[in-house]
């Protein structure tokens, strides 16, 4: 009994290693199609590594409770040691968890925030209007489309988003970008696609409405096609002349 902290520590380390190794082995995220996606995924991965020791500590104590500290017997069993508190343990715990929390706030918290929301410049502006239950795209030259969103690769695009009825939300899983569409207020999101591709290559290359907006919410999606900048200009111009 006295030395039962040894197996707990061993278990703790073992679980931590196990979780860390598993985290490193497995691909958790869908394909990243945009620069912003990499920021989000990195933040998430970092959080997973930080979570490993916390989860493992709880699991280690639980495991050893079952293996090492279990007793049988009825109501009149012997009591455990009357340890009521331990200043050193409590203080250490407070310091460590506070440090962890502070660290998480700084990185990935503020670091990620700066990277995602920090830089307001863009190469192109595309307007999106949400309505029950579809998206309407307006390209910089005024051309509009309802069936798909075509964007240039390697260009930073600003999306100006608005709704004409209820709340919707502009979400591109492949870019890890999301912002609500509000009636009467324009919201903005930025994304820089890094690779050409289409919805057929990856279902996540779509605008998915992510805010409950009524009966058609589930199907309020629009495929995205990423093409080269020249191709995109050609497409947009053709769209404008076709009307």
């Amino acid at each position: 009994m006295r030395r039962s902290w040894i197996p707990v520590v061993i278990l703790w380390v073992a679980y931590t290693v196990l979780i860390v190794v598993a985290t490193a082995q497995f691909t958790w995220f869908p394909k990243e199609w945009a620069r912003e996606a990499a920021v989000v995924d990195e933040a998430m991965l970092l959080l997973q590594y930080l979570a490993a020791p916390i989860m493992s500590l709880v699991m280690a104590v639980m495991t050893w409770s079952v293996i090492g500290w279990r007793t049988e017997g009825g109501a009149h069993r012997e009591d455990g040691a009357p340890v009521r508190t331990n200043k050193i343990v409590v203080t250490t715990w407070l310091i460590v968890t506070s440090a962890l929390a502070i660290y998480v706030v700084i990185n990935p918290g503020f670091v990620g925030l700066a990277e995602i929301r920090g830089e307001p410049s863009s190469d192109y502006v595309i307007n999106l209007q949400g309505q029950q239950f579809s998206w309407e795209v307006t390209y910089p030259n005024g051309a509009t489309a309802l069936d798909e969103l075509v964007i240039p690769v390697d260009a930073r695009v600003r999306y100006d988003i608005i709704s004409i009825d209820v709340l919707h939300s502009f979400w591109v899983p492949a870019f890890r970008i999301k912002i609500d569409a509000l009636p009467g207020i324009t919201t903005t999101a930025f994304a820089t696609a890094e690779e050409e591709g289409t919805f057929e290559d990856d279902v996540n290359l779509r605008i998915q409405c992510a805010e409950l907006c009524g009966a058609g919410h589930a199907n309020m999606a629009m495929p995205i096609r990423v093409v080269s900048e020249a191709e995109w200009i050609e497409y947009v111009e053709a769209l404008a002349t076709d009307g």
């Binding site: 989000v40 959080l47 939300s169 890890r176």
Partner: peptide
Amino acid sequence: DVATDIHLHD
């Protein structure tokens, strides 16, 4: 975390 919640929200 704002950075991850932007993707994970909803």
